[in-house]
């Protein structure tokens, strides 16, 4: 199979590797052990595989791994540093925004990107809902997720 040599960083760790050009970023991340990146549909409908590429949240199942060349990738594994949760993770815990947890890594990355771009403390529910509309969750009804984003914005 055709492969391409690429360099990228995952959670600030550098990688240089030959990547099968057919593989999605999700596949490559999971093979490297970043299993927080979940496959819920494989075709960009559910958002469970959301990661940040240069700070932008995207469905890594639809994003070829070779497109990530020379870019910075973030997954939820890299967010908690020295055992300290980020404000977003902390708010998800506090507000009860986690049930089965399968959508949680993707949602936390969407919330993280959203709050890095929207630094005001007083966010409306509408803005938050719109920014998370690409992440399906069947457990929570989204209410506690909206609550968590509001709480994280104040942290």
């Amino acid at each position: 199979m055709k492969s391409m040599n690429v360099k990228f960083s995952i959670n600030a760790k550098s990688y240089e590797m030959d990547v099968d050009v057919r593989k999605s970023l999700m596949d490559v991340l999971r093979e490297l052990g970043y299993t927080s990146v979940k496959q819920g549909c494989g075709v960009g409908e559910c958002g469970a595989c959301t990661v940040l590429v240069n700070g932008t949240p995207l469905d890594s199942c639809l994003y070829l791994a070779v497109w990530a060349a020379n870019k910075e990738i973030r997954t939820v594994e890299g967010e908690c540093k020295d055992g300290k949760l980020t404000a977003v993770q902390d708010a998800y815990v506090e507000e009860g925004a986690v049930q089965c947890g399968f959508c949680t890594p993707g949602l936390i990355m969407s919330s993280t990107a959203f709050l890095e771009k929207n630094t005001v403390e007083d966010l409306s529910s509408e803005e938050i809902r719109k920014a998370h509309a690409g992440n399906l969750c069947r457990c929570t009804g989204y209410q506690t997720i909206v609550n968590a984003v509001k709480t994280a914005a104040k942290k």
């Binding site: 999971r30 927080s36 939820v76 998800y92 986690v98 947890g101 949680t104």
Partner: peptide, 17 residues
């Protein structure tokens, strides 16, 4: 919740993991 820290840090392993 007993499982919540593992879930928000991506440490919980599901069958496909």
């Amino acid at each position: 919740r007993k499982d919540v820290i593992a879930k928000v840090t991506g440490k919980t392993r599901f069958t496909d993991d």
